[in-house]
Nucleic acid binder design. Sequence first.
RNA 1: GGAGCCGUAGUUCAGCCUGGCCCAGAACGCUGGCCUGUCACGCCAGAGGUCGCGGGUUCGAAUCCCGUCGGCUCCGCCA
Length: 606
Amino acid sequence: MLDHLGDFKRDFFAGELTENNIGDEVRLLGWAESVRDHGGVIFINLRDREGVVQVVFDPSKSPKEEVEKAKKVRLEYVIGVFGRVERRPAGTENPKIPTGNIEVIGQKLLILNTCDILPFPIEDDISVNEEVRLKYRYLDIRRNKMFKNLLLRHEVYQKTREYLAGHGFLEVETPMLTKSTPEGARDFLVPSRLEKGKFYALPQSPQLFKQILMVGGIERYFQIVKCFRDEDLRKDRQPEFTQIDFEMSFVDEEDVMAISEGLIHYLWKEILGIELKLPFPRMTYKEAIEKYGTDKPDLRYGLELIDVSDIAKEVEFKVFKGAVESGGIVKGINIKGGAKLSRKEIDLLTEDAIRFGAKGMAWIKLEKEKATSPILKFFTDEQKEKLFNKMNAEDGDLLIFIADTYETTHRVLGFLRKIIAEKLNLIPKGQWKFTWVVDFPLVEWDEEENRLVALHHPFTSPKEEDLDRLDEAIADKNVALNFKSRAYDLVLNGEEIGGGSIRIHRPDIQKKIFEMLNISEEEAEEKFGFLIQALKYGAPPHGGLAFGLDRIVALMTDSDSIREVIAFPKTQKGNCPLTGAPDFVAQEQLDELGIEVEIPVNEEEG
RNA sequence: GGAGCCGUAGUUCAGCCUGGCCCAGAACGCUGGCCUGUCACGCCAGAGGUCGCGGGUUCGAAUCCCGUCGGCUCCGCCA
């Protein structure tokens, strides 16, 4: 028989009790974390949000019926305890818990609810199938680690608001039911009941609205906001995720980057107690690609890419020579101490390289004064020396090479660099390596669509010096391909945690950019007409940035996946094991929306 | 769209490669009993399994093969 809560109120959280409370009579509420029945004395560890304290039901100190009742308590029963705080008898202190010097002698026990057999233990270091954790997320969240993650996330919300509001930013909400925009990710669609056949889209970001808020004279806007993108999931990508989004008027890149750095500095200092050094270093997009093979370089380790095209083109090795002669490049990485890798491990790396799009991977192993390699026979002694010099190679190193186009070579080596660093444990713990990546190209060529596409998004401003060459760029895509944008990304430990740009605030320029991107005037009018319209009415110069809040919190909590810092995340197929979403809906609901569903039927069985 | 790893009591795993001493075993959890200072309490007894699902091979399948579903990681995708 369960007890009612009645007017029983909590005096203290369990974890708040200290030796100063000795002698106090207190009321506690929480969960039975562990129960130890010694036949006479019963110990219950009572846990609440703030910690744990041991409650003792002792026949010599507690009422008999309460001791009997305590015997019925099982793991995770919800209980209330009225009792007296006492110092633990000498020798029975437990240094493992903060309240280990005291205990509460139970005088009255309320059993408020029972608990079924747990699907997994409520402990910090569990290894449980993630699907089970998500199905019983409420139990998962009772674990200290998950609670701490959500607590830190909460602090990030609070400190972000504090900082941005303190710098004159106004929090403004933008719609969740909005217009589908082409360009960018796939939209989640929401059917309209009032206008059958029409759809809202969930926002991929508040991008256009925040620009329009600038036209509205808000001057400084921010929002902690959910964004939705219907693309495949990764450990750092969920279909719905949270951004710290902000936008400012009458600013240039430096202003936006300064505010961004200020916010990050504030979060690290206030929440982690870490004083980051400002300003963060910067590198150009070109430098990032050519040195690290990616636009989000992890600067915690070396393994930089080295261009050996000049040597490779002289070597009588068709793959190297051919790559350079057909306009490509040959680059390598010196894996210091990598000679200890076995042939099998090198073959695995080669497989990875091929998986990432290379045709193969050449390598040279320098071991005990001698080199093993399938390609070294093509090198003259002089070429060997030049190569080893250039790559700073010495005994014990492993050199790997990719020969391909500029893009493929960098991309593949970028992936390999990361894999090697992980494999060889070259990534130091506890480092915060921030870097800005700037001077992105404005556009890139899309083979599939056979047109230029914006690298950032179509509202990103080109550099001011290129503005009077827009007509040239429309006529000749090679001119456009050389344009740089006013975009900037903030990268931390190899993860993009934020990105933004100075936007286009003039309708004439915006129209030309659409033209450059081969978006017709009609299409632009239909899809972005409201933005162009807004720009016509005194739009101020403006720019901003959006941080990936989930990624930031994951990094701050040293979590492997953003799912660890989201209360109710989705699985890789976008399912929610807790609720069972997505799910079928009633026929009536579909009828009301004028929607007919075609369920794919499996082909007949053989 | 593609690749890899995984799926066996409530949970974590072993067994699988090399089919049969496995109508599947351990630990934790669970149930009952004993125990007055434990805190990973201890001791005794016990319950608990469609081996993800479907098909095939075989005298015989958790084990081999095919398909499928689900989870995770990655490529593509994510302006």
